[in-house]
Simulated assay, not measured.
Amino acid sequence: MSDSPFTPGVRRGPVGRQARVLTLLSLYASDIRPQTVSETINWLCAHNPATTSTRRAAESMFDGITGEGSSVDEIIGRYAPAIPVRLLSIVDRNVLRVAIYELFNRDNIPRNVIINEAVELASMFGSESSARFVNGVLGSVAHDMHASVDSAVN
Rank of each mutant, 00 (worst) to 15 (best):
R11L: 10
C45Q: 10
V98T: 06
D31F: 07
I75Y: 00
I90A: 02
F125K: 09
S71K: 15
D3C: 08
S38T: 15
V91P: 01
S53L: 15
A57I: 00
A122K: 02
A57K: 00
G77T: 06
C45R: 12
V10Y: 03
N116S: 14
S129D: 08
T66D: 01
L24E: 04
P8A: 10
I65F: 02
A122E: 00
V91F: 01
R17F: 04
R106I: 14
V85S: 00
A131Y: 03
V85N: 06
P34R: 02
V119M: 04
T36R: 01
M145H: 06
G136C: 10
A80L: 11
A46Y: 08
A29L: 11
E68M: 03
V15M: 07
I32P: 01
V141K: 01
I76G: 03
I114M: 06
D107W: 07
D63L: 09
I75M: 07
F104V: 01
N112H: 09
R93P: 04
M124E: 11
T40Q: 07
V91S: 00
S140H: 13
T51D: 15
P49I: 01
G139M: 02
G9T: 07
S70Q: 14
F133L: 14
L27V: 09
P110K: 04
V137H: 01
I41D: 04
A19H: 06
P84M: 06
G69S: 11
R55M: 09
P8E: 10
T7Y: 02
S151C: 13
S71T: 15
T7G: 09
S70A: 13
D107C: 02
R111W: 02
R97C: 13
I76T: 08
G16Q: 12
T54E: 15
F104Q: 07
S53N: 12
R55V: 12
T7Q: 05
T7K: 10
E74D: 12
G13P: 05
S4L: 02
F62S: 03
S70T: 14
L22S: 06
L87P: 05
R55A: 12
L24A: 11
R93T: 01
A122Y: 00
R106P: 06
E120M: 06
V21F: 09
I65V: 09
Y79E: 02
V91C: 02
